[in-house]
Design a binder for these strands. Structure first.
Lengths: 337, 337
DNA sequence: TACTCTCATGTGAGCGCTCTCATCTATGAG
DNA sequence: CTCATAGATGAGAGCGCTCACATGAGAGTA
């Protein structure tokens, strides 16, 4: 069996020195075009590909980006990761995804450890509480950090959906339909995104001189369902709900249905995320659309520019879009006072 | 700034040779326990961690596993990947996920290329058509291959849900409820999983002496919706549908609703996958549960044993479970003939 | 003509490991 | 008491690259 070609094999075959081959590989400016051609021909003939390991050993740059992601089954993070992976590949970077359990510090530590061992160039955190970001910062001192879907930092680039605006337009939509009693179900209390959505809700309510009504939740369907059960039995049931995400909304709708209530007839509801299912459930879900693909793409772009030459930290945001569907309708005047 | 400690620093600090340190790192049998302790102490003190790159350069093993996955937004592959990543980490392996577009050969080629450059130890393909698996086999000759959710091969380990059985029990469930006109909407025609589910359906129908009725689809909600529209308008509308996956089922239900038809009153429907939403849509979806987590775990286990010492290829299968919910009910006798 | 200067290329060292081989004990067989 | 044998360690080479530096050829300047 012929062993894999290395840089010397190529050099010999092209009749140049190994260093010239290296120059071709790294696009060195001062190279005669004809030399470059010769080398490239030899590379093709020998099916040569440079050893990442050897490169990494000498440059101590791995061309790998670690992505730390909450190991949930949510659609959003996965969609983001998907976009990132593809975007990074185009630029010759690989992506190592590490899913951690936000509730288990040991789980993060392991994940971070793994990235350290790999001498990762950069780390992107997706929808992770601040504590974890801090831990990453502390342990991965040589890596460039980009924060996605979490509180922007002075030190690092961040990319976020305008969650505040999202929460606001969702609520304003309900208000404009005439609703006065609008309950908000939040995400987990330690999450930045949920907090901002909530603030958007509160601002909209305040502006309309309505009394906010907030129920703490998390991002799970099950919690939405439980909350829906309670809501259905409440004496002063709200006429509208702004759910922190689509899953919560789905759970609420289910619970209401089981209690003989119908959406939007008895209650209007807005979600957040615009998961693929949102359009196809019954009733189809009015929701705030997040462009996950763009989010991922921007994050990788930020990372790569930062890796090429570090610039000052910047907080990028993407505007959300309200998708109006069937789950919201004007408040009927039939109800007393 | 103190530079990162290397194996010589540790050796000096422990008063041994660099080779002894290497032996500690690799659990060499002939080592005095007291020497090992000394070295381990030095490692801890210096915060030493071995350079993956250097190791890889000399051993030409990267301790990385590439996962090629169809770059869709389906829940299943993501859930599998998630499980794999965690499982691999425990064993000190990292996972590089590559999402490719099944319809674009160039996209696979790029992905495979990337894995080649990284000198990956093994590759796991998830739900990929046979052509891609073949391409992987051809290009990544040195890597161990494990196939998940695709046609088992004589050469490689594979892990699959029993799709045939899944299709069969789903159909039998509908038959046992008295349905006679049962339509099946398939996955994409080039996919192994969909084919097997279809065969399970056909076998069940044949056994019950019923006429199969198959509509070709893909895995998307949108296609489910379109199919549902057609179904709703058909003169001899079936009384039950076995959808190739939950997304198709959701789409069908939506279309039926829009045409004034209700599930399960006017039509019973069974899905496949048991996505997190399945339990919480209205009506909740009767579906065939796939244990994605287990699938991923088994695949990694297979991979690791294969990497340690290659054994003969084995095809592992996991039994699916029918989850009976609200979207199916007995056929009402009221209909004529 | 002698000189700097840039362009184009070559030479050797070294990144941090593991490999192979060599060395130096102890131990027990003859 | 000598010699083979296994156990515990050390020394040096080399994996495949890039880096810093050296060299030579031609162009521009005085």
């Amino acid at each position: 069996m012929t062993r894999k070609a290395n840089i010397y094999d190529v050099a010999k075959s092209a009749g140049v020195s190994h260093q010239t081959v290296s120059r071709v590989l790294n696009n060195h400016p001062s190279l005669k075009p004809e030399t470059r051609e010769k080398v490239e021909k030899a590379i093709a003939e020998l099916h040569y590909r440079p050893s990442q390991a050897a490169r990494q050993l000498v440059t101590s740059r791995s061309r790998m980006i670690g992505i730390i992601i909450a190991g949930t089954e949510l659609y959003g993070p996965w969609a983001i990761l998907n976009a990132m992976e593809r975007e990074a590949r185009v630029e010759g970077y690989s992506v190592i995804s590490i899913s951690v359990l936000p509730e288990s510090p040991e789980s993060w530590r392991e994940g971070i450890e793994q990235l350290r061992n790999l001498d990762i160039d950069g780390v992107i955190t997706i929808a992770l509480p601040n504590v974890i970001v801090k831990a990453v910062e502390k342990s991965l001192t040589t890596a460039t950090i980009v924060i996605v879907d979490a509180e922007p930092s002075k030190k690092f680039d961040s990319v976020n959906i305008e969650n505040f605006i999202g929460g606001k337009i969702a609520t304003e939509h309900l208000i404009s339909l005439g609703h006065k009693q609008i309950t908000h179900i939040t995400g987990p209390s330690d999450g930045y995104e949920g907090q901002m959505r909530r603030k958007g809700y509160e601002e909209a309510m305040q502006k309309a001189k309505l009394k906010p009504d907030v129920i703490e939740g998390d991002w799970s369907i099950a919690t939405g369902y439980k909350t829906g059960q309670n809501l259905a039995k409440r004496s002063n049931r709200p006429t509208a709900v702004f759910a922190g995400n689509d899953h919560l909304a789905l759970g609420v709708i289910k619970a209401l249905n089981e209690n003989g209530l119908e959406v939007p007839r008895d209650l209007s509801i807005v979600g957040f995320d615009n998961i693929p299912e949102a359009e196809y459930v019954t009733p189809s879900l009015t929701t705030v659309h997040q462009n996950f693909g763009e989010l991922g793409k921007f994050a990788i772009e930020k990372m790569l520019t930062q890796l090429r030459q570090s610039t000052k930290a910047e907080a990028l945001t993407i505007a959300p879009v309200l998708m109006i569907r069937e789950s919201t309708e004007p408040l009927k005047a039939t109800k007393g006072k």
